[in-house]
Amino acid sequence: MPNKKYRVELTEEQRSHLLERLGRGERPAAEQTRVRALLKVDERTEGLACTDARTAEALEVAKGTVAGIRRRFCKRGLTGCVERKSPDREYERKLDGEQEAELIRLACSEAPEGRSQWSLRLLADQMVELDVVEDLSHETVRQTLRTDRSQTDSSLTGVASG
């Protein structure tokens, strides 16, 4: 096998862990593909290691995908390669606790006249009209109500998404 910058040499423990993960079959397809690629390019298996091109063809992925899996294994280790990486960014919350409570109170209240239920856009507009916030998008309303749904009254399920 030609010299590669990123070489995959799995220990017996790592190999059995990967085979166990694969055997359960309950992981996402992309994760299973990464596991299969690692097993195929493992250079510790005497003469059985496949090239990136053969592995890519066998798994029906691009050759660059296999090279990326190999690189991530060397840089992040087994878990960092197989599992999806969490995003590094953090988002600032648009509403504080009092504003969220007001939004929930409003969503649980009687719908405006002529409406059978609140829409996300109506809720956002009403929050601005009541001077609870300066501006608010319907998407923020959706995310806030979805986050708090488990902690609030079941009447929130009556909020329309349009």
Rank of each mutant, 00 (worst) to 15 (best):
E90N: 13
T144Y: 01
W118R: 12
A56S: 07
L130Q: 15
E26G: 13
L18I: 05
D52L: 12
G25K: 10
L106A: 13
T152H: 03
A124S: 04
G47N: 08
R54M: 10
D131A: 14
V82Y: 05
Q117H: 11
A160C: 07
A124W: 01
N3M: 10
I69G: 01
A49W: 06
L130A: 15
S137M: 00
T55F: 03
Y6M: 07
D88I: 11
L106P: 15
R89T: 15
P112Y: 02
D52Q: 12
R36P: 05
Q14A: 08
L106Q: 10
A101K: 14
L136S: 10
L18V: 02
A101E: 04
K94L: 14
L39E: 00
K63P: 11
C50I: 01
Q99S: 11
A53W: 02
A67N: 01
A37F: 09
M1C: 04
L120P: 02
C74E: 00
C74W: 01
R15W: 03
Q32F: 07
E129R: 15
L95C: 12
E102P: 05
S16L: 06
D42Q: 10
K5E: 11
H138Y: 11
S154Q: 04
E102R: 15
H17F: 06
Q151F: 08
A160G: 05
R36K: 14
T79Q: 06
F73R: 09
L130W: 08
E139Q: 13
H17M: 07
G162E: 00
D96P: 11
R149Y: 06
D135I: 04
L48K: 15
T51I: 03
S155M: 08
K85L: 14
H138G: 12
E13I: 08
T65P: 06
I69E: 00
T140M: 05
E57I: 04
R15P: 13
D135K: 14
A56Y: 02
D42G: 11
Y91S: 12
A111H: 03
L130K: 15
R149W: 09
C74S: 09
V61N: 01
A67I: 08
V128S: 06
R36M: 11
R84D: 04
K5M: 13
Q126N: 06
S150L: 10
E98P: 09
R21W: 09
A107D: 00
T147K: 15
E100N: 05
E20L: 12
P2D: 00
S154W: 04
G77V: 05
C50D: 04
S137L: 01
A101D: 02
T79I: 08
L38K: 02
E102C: 14
D96A: 06
C81V: 09
R15V: 06
T11H: 03
L156C: 06
L136C: 14
I104M: 03
T140E: 00
V61D: 00
S116T: 10
P28K: 11
T51R: 14
R34F: 03
D135N: 08
L18Y: 00
H17N: 07
E46Y: 11
A111I: 07
R115M: 14
A62L: 08
E26M: 09
R115V: 03
D125H: 11
Q143H: 10
A49G: 11
V159C: 04
D88G: 15
R93W: 01
K5N: 13
T79Y: 00
S119L: 08
R115F: 12
